[in-house]
Design a protein around this nucleic acid. Structure first.
Length: 854
RNA sequence: GGGCGCAUAGCUCAGCUGGUUAGAGCACUGCCCUUACAAGGCAUAGGUCGGGGGUUCGAGUCCCUCUGCGCCCA
């Protein structure tokens, strides 16, 4: 038997136990386990962005408790963790932290030192650095942040197998991501196309539908006169919020049923300022009640323009460059000197500047009627961006996701139905997203810190890339970087030369890699290239826990990749956690400035207390951040210390069979019920209900049962004392194990007082094989009533009871008879009378306290 | 505009397939320094289950509708 501290404390237990778990490999996955013994969890690797949000703590704690249960229930738990570090978020932090900016035209400098490490002055101009230098700085910064994240997750008590740690930029992830992409390409699921693409002008990269959000922004309708031609000599008035795009106008469009414009369909008009002749066409997407009911189609003002352009087969007249400015050279479709002069006024300007110049010119020419009419309207932004998105034409890589293909869409909807969702209603978010897709998944990004698209292109005699016949690397050479690696059959000096080759300059979208976390963590590549067996033992995984905000991105894209590569779901179940709301019930977010950091809370309340707060929330339910709940959790943890100390301080029961006392049997039967309820709850991933049942039993056990039997356990007659001592220890050991998934630190602390191995390596408790007809509810009632009497008499709970008369229905009184001796001891009763009446008799409890001597 | 979710005690929430006087914790109030526990324990009090209508012997629970809030998508 190990020793029990004189004064048990929660202080410092996190560091002690976290270290012990790692040293003993308590959470290490056993690769020899068969698939049916494995419970595998696809943990979404968090973005290492400098600080951890309480929402992450919240969700991760919930599924850690599920994983801990599964481990105790006998499963080999495959519980990897990774860091999602590639992508634009890291690039931005690197720029801000070091004061640099990536310029791929620069040469690599082996001894480069960044101008700053943190604390970059506001006026500093970013120093351009080569791509390899920039990537090295990204890696330096993520290493710092990842160390902080690891410390927090260890402190949180996450039962990850840290030997499985990966990052989404490491060699294994790059290899996985590139191999999966090449196989998508080979099967025709990936393709490249030169097409209109939603473009962020600040980050100078294409962005995907999933990264776009609408924001309400002020704008204005401008009423413009287009001029009829031929027989229709009159002006046609249109309302537009983007007059600067008149030069890109390729048509006017109205609804086919709109009688006002019937006569115009098939005719042409000339644009204001530029005099370009464009057709008037009909399309059902035109909204008769919006503005004048007829709109100008530009290439491209918004995604509806793209639809019109595609479906009506209109020409392309783009003028917005990738920097968000009107291109300097006048386009060839402008013919007249007036048109060229008008273009001169906007050339080289930003969209905003060009709009002002255009309005000025229109006012001067009299082609704008009245003043602009302000309105609020939704404008598309990159979710991390600060300027509206533009649409430019560029060559990009896509993965087919059903956005343009009914059969694939139906296949992905079917996958969504096949998946078990916890809670079930979260499946609607998936369905709506898939049903609303309007294009394939754009996976290429014109960025630097990401997994390179693993392709080269042959250059023709003019030095132009032949995009239709990319050069593919051999699988066993992955990962590659086509900007430095040379394709088979070529030499390095042929790079960029006519007849030579060029590497694809782009990297993949971060989701193109993080959609492969089951394959990365499960070492799928090894199973493909060298027959490794791990993947088959963990995939498809059992559970994907995650937040609701990444259903449309992460969850969906992971389903897409597994569907293509494995013809299956990536996991059988997904559990979606809720939001964290601040006490005012507003969503916590950095921009609102109401974010709390976890480390301070761990120190103030103890990790188990913070975990208690997270685990008290029902699965999937939005939950208020509540330090009050943490206080309750701390009290529970403290109670577990004290109760454990007390139970273990009763005399050790001797071996051998004892005859079980009816009171003890009743408690153990109730305990058995609790075990059954907690087990059922956990099997359905309902950690909250499991905790609630355990907690409520535990408080009853402390308040009533322990009080009833403490005298007997200490000093009762031999057999009865033995029974109580056995029962106390049985209940304590069961409760400690049932609390272990929720409160890993305090439970291992108290478990260690009487065991050598970690409680987390123990089996989930079975219900004691004890049945009982006896209910202790009547005894609890008597305890409460006598306590109340003492309280009302302003007496100590130690005060003796001179005489206690309990009357009630015979059946109810019968429940008290077996408790008589324990009640007498617990309440210090001199004279105890039980009086059975008729079955409809009222319960009466008359308490006569011994006189107060004071 | 469409979808999903929520509305129960002052606060945060349970209440599973409709069934005895609606539960817990926190806060409040009161009592107690009881040899496990005073950064604690015990106990009291507190609710027309958002409004309206319907189904049913019976509705917090099922249906309709309205109101308010949150999230997602247009």
């Amino acid at each position: 038997m190990n020793s029990i501290p004189e004064k048990p404390t929660l202080d410092g237990i996190e560091a002690r136990w976290a270290e012990r778990w790692e040293a003993d490999g308590v959470y290490r996955f056993d690769r020899g386990a068969d698939r049916d013994q494995v419970f595998s969890v696809d943990t979404p690797p968090p973005t290492v962005s400098g600080s951890i949000h309480m929402g992450t703590i919240f969700g991760y704690t919930q599924f850690d408790s599920v994983a801990r249960y599964q481990r105790m229930a006998g499963k080999q738990v495959f519980f990897p963790i990774g860091w999602d570090d590639n992508g634009l978020a890291t690039e931005r932090r690197t720029q801000n932290y070091f004061g640099v900016r990536c310029d791929p035209t620069k040469q690599y400098e082996p001894d480069f030192e960044p101008p700053f490490r943190g604390d970059v002055p506001a006026k500093h101009h970013e120093v351009p650095v080569s791509r390899p230098n920039f990537v090295a700085l990204c890696e330096e910064l993520t290493a710092i942040d990842e160390a902080v994240f690891e410390e927090i997750f260890r402190r949180l008590g996450m039962s990850f197998d840290w030997t499985l740690l990966y990052t989404t930029i490491d060699a294994g992830s790059r290899r996985t991501s590139q191999l999966a992409f090449l196989r998508n390409l080979a099967r025709g699921e990936a393709y490249s196309a030169d097409a209109p693409t939603v473009w962020d002008v600040d980050d100078r990269t294409a962005v995907a539908q999933a990264e776009i959000e609408d924001r309400e922004r002020p704008g204005a309708y401008h009423l413009l006169a287009f001029h009829g031609t031929g027989d229709n000599a009159g002006d046609v008035m249109i309302d537009t919020t983007r007059p600067e795009l008149i030069v890109s106008c390729v048509a006017l469009v109205a609804h086919p049923d709109d009688e006002r414009y019937q006569p115009l369909f098939g005719s042409t008009v000339r644009t204001p300022l530029f005099g370009v002749e464009v057709p008037v066409v009909a399309h059902p997407l035109a909204q008769p009640d919006k503005g004048t009911g007829i709109a100008m189609v530009c290439t491209f003002g918004d995604t509806t323009d793209v639809t019109w352009w595609r479906e009506l087969d209109l020409p392309t007249r783009s003028v917005i460059g990738r920097d968000g400015r009107i291109v300097a050279t006048p386009p060839e479709w402008l013919e007249t000197p007036e048109a060229l002069a008008a273009y001169e006024a906007i050339a080289g300007k930003t969209v905003k500047q060009a709009q002002a110049a255009t309005v000025e010119a229109l006012t001067a020419s009299g082609e704008m009627h009245g003043d602009p009419r302000p309105l609020m309207h939704p404008v598309k932004f990159y979710e991390r961006g600060s300027r509206p998105l533009e649409i430019v034409t560029s060559r990009q890589w896509y993965l087919r996701n059903g956005g343009r293909d009914e059969d694939r869409r139906n296949a992905f909807l079917a996958r969504g139905k096949e998946l078990d969702w916890y809670p079930d209603h979260m499946r609607h978010r998936y369905d709506h997203w898939v049903e609303g897709l309007n294009g394939d998944w754009l996976v290429s990004r014109q960025r630097f810190f990401g997994v390179p698209i693993p392709l080269w292109y042959p250059l023709d005699d003019d030095g132009e890339p032949r995009y239709d016949s990319p050069i593919v690397p051999a699988d066993d050479t992955l990962p590659i970087d086509p900007s430095t690696d040379v394709p088979p059959g070529y030499t390095a000096d042929q790079r960029g030369r006519p007849g030579g080759f060029a590497g694809d300059p782009d990297v993949m979208d971060t989701w193109a890699t993080s959609s492969l976390t089951p394959q990365i963590a499960g070492q799928w590549v090894d199973s493909v290239l060298s027959g490794g067996s791990l993947f088959g033992n963990v995939f498809p995984m059992d559970l994907r826990p995650q937040g609701p905000e990444i259903i449309r991105t992460w969850l969906f894209s992971t389903v897409v990749r597994a569907h293509y590569e494995h013809g299956s779901l990536p996991w059988t179940s997904t559990a979606i956690n809720g939001w964290i709301l601040d006490p005012d019930r507003k969503k916590m977010s950095k921009s609102k400035g109401n974010v709390v950091t976890p480390m301070g809370l761990f120190e103030q309340y103890g990790t188990d207390a913070v975990r208690y707060w997270a685990l008290a929330a029902r699965p999937g339910v939005d939950t208020a951040f509540s330090e009050d709940q943490m206080k309750v959790g701390r009290r529970l943890a403290t109670k577990l210390l004290n109760a454990s100390k007390f139970v273990l301080s009763t005399p050790d029961p001797s071996g051998g069979d004892v005859e079980i006392d009816p009171v003890d049997a009743a408690m153990l039967a109730r305990l058995g019920q609790t075990v059954a309820e907690a087990t059922t709850a956990f099997e359905g991933f309902d950690y909250a209900r499991a905790l609630e049942h355990t907690e409520s039993f535990f408080w009853w056990f402390c308040d009533d049962y322990v009080e009833l039997v403490k005298q007997r356990a200490y000093a009762g007659e031999a057999g009865a004392a033995e029974s109580a001592r056995h029962a106390l220890r049985t209940a304590l050991g069961t409760v400690q194990r049932m609390f272990a998934p929720a409160l890993p630190f305090v439970t291992d602390e108290v478990w260690s007082w009487w065991h050598d191995a970690s409680v987390h390596a123990e089996a989930w408790p079975a219900a004691p094989a004890v049945t009982s007809e006896l209910s202790l509810d009547a005894a609890s009632e008597v305890l409460a009533r006598v306590r109340r009497a003492k309280t009302e008499a302003k007496r100590s709970q130690r005060a003796g009871v001179a005489r206690l008369v309990v009357t009630g229905p015979a059946g109810w009184i019968a429940q008290l008879e077996p408790c008589r001796r324990d009640l007498v001891d617990a309440l210090t009763i001199a004279d105890f009378e039980l009086s059975a009446g008729a079955e409809d008799a009222a319960v009466g409890i008359a308490v006569e306290l011994v006189p107060d001597e004071a």
